[in-house]
Design a protein around this nucleic acid. Structure first.
Lengths: 188, 188
DNA sequence: GACACCGTGTTGGATATTCAACAAACAGTT
DNA sequence: AACTGTTTGTTGAATATCCAACACGGTGTC
């Protein structure tokens, strides 16, 4: 995938993303200009246009990349054993830690209304194909249950971010996993 | 001075400096390679050589720049009024705050033996031309006194850095200035 | 309406960086 | 001594970015 990028491209894209996130933490995207993004990033404006058509494009490409990364984590572990499923959750929480401000901003509904939904859909897809294939009783009911469980998990994560990540990813992973398992035990 | 630098030059020089400082905090310069500096900085090695001849050159240019900055601060204030001399000290301490790791590393004698001496000489020169012109009694004696005072001040700053800058630059500025004034009151 | 101001895309030429490759010097191993 | 692996400077051609300039559309002000 995505043939190796020149160091320069990697750098400019990285700082442009960081810049947009910083600005998004201060004001809505409609009040942000391309010029501003470039100034904060210290990147020439003409360079911006060789990568993105405008700042909305930049944002949507960021969202896409994140969902790709998340998918990566979700499907690189087997959800069979308790062991591995906790490791997976931990990996994801570490990823969030490394991109704290980004998730803080993107998970804020007012800022980027689409992002939380995206995360929900993503996770639900995974849940449906993995967790349920064993003990599916009622298809409809289990879809609602997964909504319930996932939105709960996401909000626990949001709280955790707001509390400045007071617990380690490992601790949180164990906790969240047991919440999720308990939630699905409803079906039995 | 120094015609405006292209963004790209500014960036590469900045990250190369940061990289060297990081490595110097881990090992002596003799164990550091140019290759390593470039890897940490994520800069192509051939680019390194267009700016510096080797990592020793990079280090000495860093030292030179710092002393230039310090001189800037020293001579942009009038040392007449107590008021301004405290402001000056504060500016310098803020500069140190912004470059914490750098000073931490460079003021460590084992790492860069020349740097502390440089700072001493620099400050002594300033002291001799400004502080003393009023009440000079004994030229020789006052030179020794300034050594005494300056080295004291520098070590207070080193302590402050090691204590993770527990007090504000403002507080420290007031304290250090009163130490210095008391020291020079010896001459009266 | 005329005006000044500001962000937008886009362009062309100048410049800096990248990348891959090379020969040479060096250190450690067998 | 031959062998292996690593760092060093240096090169040339490809590429990305910079910068300054432009015409354009929008917005607010007199």
């Amino acid at each position: 995938m995505s043939g190796k990028l020149d160091r320069r491209k990697k750098y400019t894209r990285r700082v442009l993303k960081e810049s947009l996130i910083t600005l998004l933490s201060q004001k809505p995207i409609s009040n942000i200009t391309v010029k501003e993004v470039c100034e904060v990033a210290d990147i020439n404006r003409s360079t911006f246009y060789t990568h993105y058509s405008d700042h909305y494009d930049l944002l949507s490409k960021m969202e896409k990349e994140i969902t790709e990364d998340m998918n990566q984590y979700l499907y690189s572990y087997s959800y069979e054993r308790e062991e591995e499923s906790i490791q997976m959750t931990e990996k994801i929480l570490e990823y969030i830690t490394e991109n704290k401000l980004m998730f803080q901003v993107l998970l804020n509904k007012k800022a980027v209304p689409t992002f939380e939904k995206r995360m929900m859909d993503l996770t639900r897809g995974f849940m449906m194909t993995n967790l349920m294939d064993g003990h599916v009783v009622n298809k409809q009911e289990s879809e609602y249950l997964s909504s319930f469980v996932i939105s709960g998990a996401i909000h626990v994560i949001k709280d955790w971010i707001e509390k400045d990540m007071d617990r380690s990813p490992k601790e949180m992973a164990v906790m969240i996993n047991s919440f999720i398992n308990y939630g699905f035990s409803y079906l039995e």
